[in-house]
Design a protein around this nucleic acid. Structure first.
Lengths: 253, 253
DNA sequence: ATAGTTTGTTCCATTGAGTGGAACAGCTGT
DNA sequence: ACAGCTGTTCCACTCAATGGAACAAACTAT
């Protein structure tokens, strides 16, 4: 429909569009999805029947919703991810040590993907879950990763996704981003000062392999009210960086 | 292929078979999958191209593997699940309190699905992850759920899945299962004595809503060596049951 | 009750799209 | 240089996805 590149199997694409719509809108009926997707009621019905037979969706009366079988795929992908295996415990430790929100992120298709997220005792509730995608340039985690990617890779990513503003603090200028990335490489950690969500500060440290390739990043997020400038520039960066170092040690062997 | 019921969209089914094969075998090449699935090389290639364009798979040189986009769907399903929302913290508490493995399970399509799994300090490493499916009859969690399902539902489930033996301790006789389920209803918790995995004991308590419908179950798993008979029949059941009760209180409102 | 509206579902002719064989290209090792 | 692998492209054939129409079932309103 959009572009008939050397991609084939248009039908499966439609099924995927149905899945996407179910994720976006939650539990939905046949006619609703048909309207939403501009497809025939009958067609949507066929796709949903197939997905139900394959147990990818569950029907609740007249509505369909995504099933736990998708969690099976997701859990599998997470569980077998090499970085998750070694970093999981550190994320946990970071969350309980600080009492705040600890996150682990990797890059895929030019976006930041949360691999793990754990809330400490008094952590903010941000609706972050594994698999959620966020623009790299607007968060500490993402900038930590961008700072250690090859520069042509960074060019490609920005060309594809741009630098959209999430809040009025988001970096939208390429030159300013480059300057910040240089700083990140210099001092070893990245910060995010209300750039994705107002009132939230975030400190992220890159996880870099022996050969210099960046594997991901780990972070702590706190409300501004609990993160004064000292904590923001000294204490928290130290904790996060040491967590990243522990992970780096475990990845080399 | 198997049965042309009123299910349509055979093509999407093939795409799903490709996804299943990738999950089963991990990173795979085109020809390998073609052989494995009995499909033409060209066909598999088309499906994989489509999945790649839709970012459901990533190619690593000549091999394809499941991408983190699937984690997005999985994480979303988990995150929006009503029981997960309220039970998450209790699973966490249970794991850190006992130091062992704590799990949360719900039933879907007659199987047990782990919704959450957390390891305490000294917990066994069982390769359990959210979304993993296990037969209900072979685990404490599953029996806790079965005990509170309507009896005709239980009939249907056993008819569909049978009572396959996982170890030599697994219950394979319907009468014995019924007797155990009565005991579970009686004392309020279920046990699993090396029935799924040798050397592993497990105590599960059902989570029941006000109206009597069972929402899921929560459990603690320990190696036999650390779970003597006293802990197995007194201490651990108390802890698990109280966790279940806390969750039940949070679900009513 | 009755008529009207909206839902999900089934049916079927049309044609558009998935299929799979063959041919091609790129790679590795002997 | 050759043989035996890959992954990929191409294209004619035909099978299956499509979407309109007709259907039944569930509500709402009059």
């Amino acid at each position: 429909m959009t572009e008939n590149a050397p991609n084939r199997v248009e039908t499966s694409r439609k099924t995927i569009r149905v899945l996407d719509a179910l994720r976006e809108h939650g539990s939905s009926s046949v006619t609703f999805l048909a309207r939403e997707l501009g497809m025939n009621k009958s067609t949507v019905h066929n796709h949903l029947s197939t997905l139900e037979a394959e147990k990818f969706v569950v029907r609740d009366g007249t509505d369909y919703e995504l099933s736990l079988r998708l969690l099976g795929f997701g859990g599998y992908v997470q569980h077998r991810h090499p970085l998750y295996q070694v970093a999981k415990r550190e994320v946990h430790r970071l969350a309980s040590q600080t009492g705040e929100l600890a996150n682990l992120m990797v890059e895929e298709y030019g976006q930041g993907v949360y691999l793990a997220s754990e809330q400490g005792e008094r952590a903010v509730d941000l609706d972050i879950y594994p698999g959620l995608r966020r623009p790299l340039h607007a968060i500490g985690l993402g900038k930590a990763i961008l700072a250690h990617l090859p520069s042509d890779r960074v060019d490609d990513i920005i060309e594809e996704h741009g630098l959209p503003a999430e809040t009025d603090q988001t970096i939208t200028d390429r030159a300013e981003l480059d300057a910040q990335l240089a700083t990140v490489r210099d001092r070893g950690y990245a910060v995010d000062n209300e750039e994705l969500i107002r009132g939230l500060r975030c400190v992220g440290a890159p996880i870099v392999a022996k050969d210099g390739t960046v594997l991901g990043a780990i972070s702590v997020s706190q409300p501004v009210s609990r993160m004064n400038n000292e904590r923001f520039t000294d204490e928290v960066p130290d904790i996060v960086q040491s967590a990243a170092n522990v992970i780096e040690l475990h990845t080399n062997h």
